[in-house]
């Protein structure tokens, strides 16, 4: 179990560097990072800078969430978002920002290029919950927290999945 840095720790504001060595040390770190993620309150994502390692590494796994499309456990090394489509508001929380959740606008769909733990490059298309989690984690690699992107509750115009009462039923 690795120690999670929490805001306002200045290390969370650093831009992380690319990974170049896909060695055994990296594999061991990935196991520790995943264990730390799964022990967290949400447990669906973590980025290396959250444990003080300023390298472009993140893990997302939203498979515990029912009825959504996802890629299972996704180890992302040197990830780059190559395409964005649509936007929607959603509420986020973060292990590095305890006792606070807030509304953030993210792209609905993204395309992503990332290396796996062996250094092999893959391309992914994803949307919704998983795309939100990935955007949140990649922000950590650029020294950004969701509280840097908050939008006002009062001027929320970006509703999704609206369940409207039907007249007379």
């Amino acid at each position: 179990m690795l120690n999670i840095l929490t805001y306002p720790d200045p290390r969370l504001k650093n831009v992380s560097v690319s990974v170049t060595e896909f060695d055994e040390k990296l594999q061991a770190f990935l196991m520790d990072l995943e264990e730390t993620m799964r022990a967290g309150p949400g447990g669906v994502g973590i980025a290396a800078p959250q444990v003080g390692r300023l390298e472009r590494i993140a893990i997302v796994d939203v498979s515990s969430k029912p009825k959504i499309s996802h890629h299972g456990r996704l180890v992302m090394i040197n990830p780059e978002i190559t395409d964005w489509d649509g936007f929607e508001m959603g509420r986020e929380g973060c292990m590095s920002v305890p006792d606070y959740t807030g509304n953030v606008i993210r792209a609905t769909k993204i395309r992503l290029v990332a290396q796996d733990k062996q250094g092999v490059s893959h391309e992914y298309s994803m949307e919704g919950y998983e795309a939100r989690a990935v955007q949140h984690e990649i922000d950590h690699l650029d020294g950004l927290l969701f509280i840097d992107r908050l939008v006002s509750r009062r001027h929320d115009l970006f509703q999704r999945k609206v369940y409207e009462s039907k007249k007379g039923t």
Binding site: I46, G90, E92, G93, H136, R160, V162, K166
Partner: peptide, 23 residues
């Protein structure tokens, strides 16, 4: 809200679950 709406059709009411992604 559905039963309210039956008696108050002039109101526009939307209900939306808030999903919080905690990472």
């Amino acid at each position: 809200l559905r039963s309210l709406f039956a008696s108050q059709p002039d109101l526009k009411v939307t209900l939306e679950p808030i999903e919080t992604v905690v990472m």
